[in-house]
């Protein structure tokens, strides 16, 4: 088989794979539409809507301490506060 023939075949295969990839991408998209994901999540998972209170701006001044332990302690305190706040919503 001469080199030109191999190039020709490779190009052709590439074209077919690209077309297949395109179709798979479309299929993946059809399976992950927000509407479908929401419907399935409600049906199978016990998840709740994220509330604004669950997002906090990162404030580096809270973590001024050099001790890793203390920083972790502070962080876990903030998180438990946020969880308590969010669960009091229901």
């Amino acid at each position: 088989m001469d080199i030109e023939d191999r190039i020709y075949r490779a190009k052709k295969e590439l074209k077919i794979e690209k077309a297949n990839n395109h179709i798979l991408r479309a299929e993946w998209k059809a399976l992950t539409t927000p509407e479908r994901v929401q419907r399935l999540a409600i049906k199978h998972l016990k998840m709740k809507q994220i509330l604004p209170q669950q997002l906090r701006e990162y404030d580096p001044s809270i973590f001024h301490s050099d001790s890793k332990k203390q920083n972790t302690k502070k962080l876990s305190k903030i998180i438990s506060e946020m969880v308590a706040e969010a669960s009091s919503e229901d």
Binding site: Q49, I50, L51, P52, Q53, Q54, L55, R56, E57
Partner: peptide, 14 residues
């Protein structure tokens, strides 16, 4: 707003 705010990464003022 309550639904899209967190999705848009808008942080709260506490």
């Amino acid at each position: 707003i309550q639904r899209i705010g967190p999705m848009l990464n808008v942080t709260t003022s506490g």
